[in-house]
């Protein structure tokens, strides 16, 4: 093994999923490079990797409940053999199975929702298990629970709890501010649409801004519509979901909420 590698990697190798990822990254890179060369050369036909099978001589061991793999080196004896077979996907298969990233508003990226508290490493860990957006993290919390997600992402539970808490904060998705009606000083009420994963079924939250109540027009399925007065637009609203769960969110386009200290969402 390379002496420049960290001691754990020299002795135990890398987690199995990291090994698989490094293999697929190489294949993706090779395919992309081959396709680029064929297009640049304007070749009507080219050769593409169809199937790859790799029999790796390696040592396999468990480290903290994770399977680690270290490829055998010169002089290593009695290594195991891992047989991996991969096949390629066509353009149509990619299009059928790809996640539609356009449907997710980029302003609600994980990084934005975490107010910059998510480190690059933690973001990579979440992406490794397929979590790239706030919606995916919120859905995962409902279906799997924090302990399972933390184990899969190899993140400390307390850091994941912070991420889940931040992801569950309300955020403004759309602000409708109609123009004032002709002959009237007051126009129709504005509408502020929010996503509120912390919303509880059958309970309408209590919303206040600038010392006054903010009417809640709709509240269901994790979504809320508020009808603030003109003077409340742009100010922080306090949303009380009940049971001590209170969040503050600016009533402005793209506003991302924060839980008040002591909230238990």
């Amino acid at each position: 093994m390379n002496p420049a590698l960290p001691p754990l990697m020299q002795e135990s190798g890398v987690p199995f999923d990291v090994f698989i990822t490094s293999l697929t990254e190489q294949l993706d890179r090779a395919q992309a490079s081959m396709a680029l060369k064929a297009r640049v050369a304007k070749l009507p036909l080219t050769f593409a990797v169809k199937d790859v099978s790799l029999d790796v001589r390696a040592f396999v061991q468990l480290v903290d409940d994770d399977v680690f793999v270290r490829p055998a080196g010169p002089g290593d004896t009695e290594a195991s053999t891992i047989k991996l077979t991969l096949t390629t996907v066509t353009r149509s298969m990619v299009e059928e199975n790809a996640v539609d990233f356009k449907s997710e508003d980029p302003q609600f990226s994980l990084r934005e929702a975490m107010h910059g508290q998510l480190s690059d490493e933690d973001q990579r860990r979440l992406e490794r298990i397929g979590v790239r957006t706030v919606e995916q993290l919120t859905d995962l919390r409902k279906t799997a629970g924090a302990d399972v997600v933390a184990r899969l992402a190899r993140m400390p539970v307390n850091r994941l709890q912070q991420a889940l808490l931040a992801a569950a904060a309300p955020r403004v998705t759309q602000v409708e501010a109609p123009a004032p009606e002709a002959g009237s000083e007051r126009g129709a009420a504005a509408r502020v649409h929010l996503r509120a994963p912390g919303l509880r079924a059958g309970r309408i939250p209590f919303v206040r801004a600038a010392g006054q109540n903010v009417p809640v027009v709709e509240s269901h399925d994790g979504r809320m519509v508020l009808a603030p007065h003109a003077g409340q637009l742009g100010l922080d609203a306090e949303i009380d979901f009940g049971d001590g769960e209170i969040a503050r969110v600016p009533l402005a386009q793209g506003g991302i909420g924060r839980w008040a200290s002591g909230s238990t969402a």
Binding site: Q31, S53, R57, P71, P74, R91
Partner: peptide, 21 residues
């Protein structure tokens, strides 16, 4: 140096360039 080498089996197909992702 090696008791037994790792083995890579790879198959290539000629395909129209436009089929590539």
């Amino acid at each position: 140096w090696w008791q037994a080498q790792s083995r890579l089996t790879v198959s290539f197909d000629a395909v129209p360039t436009e089929w590539l992702p």
